[in-house]
Structures are given as structure tokens and as C-alpha cells.
Amino acid sequence: MIHDFCESSWDKPTGSRCSTMKLHIHLYASLASHLPEKSDRNSCFLEVADGMTIRQLLEQLGIPENAPKILFRNGVHAELDEIMKDGDRVAVFPPIAGG
């Protein structure tokens, strides 16, 4: 499913047609509830403004910044302030540590 967030309040349009990138977002376990409606069970494709950071993405998805979470970008651990690129796969997991 494609969401064009250029037309939403997500990004910060510069007045002209904004440049976008497409991301594949995976939210696991309890975080899946933050996916847009009509997403697959735990993933969706999003089109967002170029230059968006993971922190901005999570903010737009409504995931609290202080929620314990693990971030992966293209399968490698990522930081909140990393700027994403077109085609990136972003995955967010809650840490599951109970025994």
C-alpha cells in the first residue's frame, strides 16, 4: 500500500512539488498498531519527503520517543537521527527480554 504523505501534514512542503522517497516500514509486535490503516499486518510502504530522519518518521507514526525500541535500517542497527534514502527498509522492534 502506498501512502503519499506529500499531500498530508506529514512533511514540510516548500511550496513547489516536493521530492519524495519510498520506504518499506516494518513495525513488529505491539508497535504494529502504529501502522497506517489498511497496512499489512506488520508492514507498509510509505512515501515521505526526501531527507526525513528515522526520528521524524517515528514521530509521524505516533511512536513515542521514549518507548523502548530497536531500530534497523536495511537490516543494520540504526540511530534516530539517520537520514533515510529512497528504497530503505526500516524496521522497529520492541526489546523482548523476559525469560
Binding site: 523502548p68 530497536i70 527480554a97 523476559g98
Partner: peptide, 8 residues
């Protein structure tokens, strides 16, 4: 980042 993980 994971210290405050959910506990049983």
C-alpha cells in the same frame, strides 16, 4: 535503549 523493556 533497551533497559526499560517490558517485564512479565
Amino acid at each position: 535503549a533497551v533497559a526499560d523493556h517490558p517485564r512479565a
